[in-house]
Simulated scan of single mutants.
Amino acid sequence: MAKKHESSGPKVTRTASSVLRDSSASKTAKSLAGSALAQSGTRKVSSATTARTAANALNDGRTSAGTKALAGSVLTQRPGKRK
Rank of each mutant, 00 (worst) to 15 (best):
R82H: 13
S73A: 08
L58D: 09
G41I: 05
G80I: 03
K27V: 15
K30G: 08
S8E: 02
K30H: 09
K68D: 07
D22L: 01
K11L: 08
S24A: 13
R52D: 15
T63W: 02
T42M: 10
T15V: 11
R82K: 13
A69S: 07
N56M: 11
V12K: 01
L70F: 01
S64R: 04
K27N: 15
V12T: 12
A65I: 12
A57C: 11
K81L: 12
A48T: 08
K83T: 14
S64I: 04
S18A: 15
A25F: 06
K3I: 06
K30W: 07
K68R: 09
T50E: 06
G34N: 10
R82A: 13
A36Y: 00
S73M: 08
V12E: 02
T42D: 10
A25C: 07
L20A: 07
K81A: 12
K3L: 08
Q39C: 04
L37M: 05
S35G: 08
L37P: 00
T42L: 10
G66F: 02
S64C: 03
T49C: 06
G9D: 14
G61W: 00
R14Y: 05
R21H: 13
S8C: 13
T49E: 14
S40L: 04
K81D: 06
N56F: 10
S17V: 07
K3V: 09
K11T: 11
A57W: 00
Q39N: 06
Q39T: 01
N59S: 09
A65P: 10
A16W: 00
S31M: 11
G66S: 12
T49P: 04
K11W: 07
S73C: 08
S40Q: 13
A33V: 03
T28R: 05
A65W: 11
T76E: 13
A25L: 11
T28N: 06
L32P: 04
V19L: 03
S40I: 05
T67A: 01
K68E: 06
K44F: 14
M1L: 10
N59W: 01
T53P: 07
T15R: 03
S24R: 11
A25E: 07
D22V: 03
T67N: 00
T67R: 00
K11H: 10
G72M: 12
A29H: 00
S31Q: 11
K11A: 13
K83S: 15
D22G: 01
M1Y: 06
R62Y: 06
L70W: 01
